Amino acid sequence: MIHATAIVDPKAELDSSVTVGPYTVIGAGVRIGAGTSVGPHCVIEGPTTVGRDNKIFQFASLGAAPQDKKYAGEPTQLIVGDRNTIREFCTMNRGTVQDDGITALGDDNWIMAYVHLAHDCKVGNRVIMANNAQLAGHVHVGDWAILGGFTAVHQFVHIGAHSMTGLGSILFQDLPPFIMAAGNTAEARSFNLEGLKRRGFTPEQLNAVKQMYRLLYRRGLTVDQAQIEMAGLQASHPEARDTIQLMLDFLKTATRGIIR
Rank of each mutant, 00 (worst) to 15 (best):
G35P: 06
M92P: 13
V50W: 00
G106M: 11
T91R: 12
T96Q: 03
G33S: 04
G29D: 09
E74N: 09
L105W: 00
G106L: 11
F59M: 11
Q58N: 14
D99N: 08
I56M: 11
A34R: 14
Q58A: 15
K11A: 14
Q58R: 14
T48A: 04
K55N: 08
E88G: 13
I102D: 04
V115H: 06
N93M: 07
G39T: 01
Q58S: 15
D9P: 01
C90W: 00
K70P: 07
G95K: 00
I26C: 00
T85L: 15
V38W: 01
N109D: 12
N109A: 12
T103P: 14
G51I: 03
F57N: 13
I86V: 13
G35E: 07
K55R: 15
D9T: 02
A64H: 15
E74A: 08
T85R: 09
T24M: 11
V25S: 13
P66Y: 11
A72V: 12
D100R: 03
G95D: 07
V30C: 01
F89M: 10
G95H: 03
G21A: 06
D82E: 00
I102C: 11
D99V: 03
A6S: 09
T36P: 00
H41Y: 13
E13W: 04
Y23K: 13
A104R: 15
V115T: 14
V8A: 09
K11M: 13
V18S: 12
M112D: 14
G35Y: 04
G27M: 00
V43D: 04
G51C: 05
L62M: 02
T91S: 15
T49R: 08
I86F: 10
R94V: 01
T103K: 14
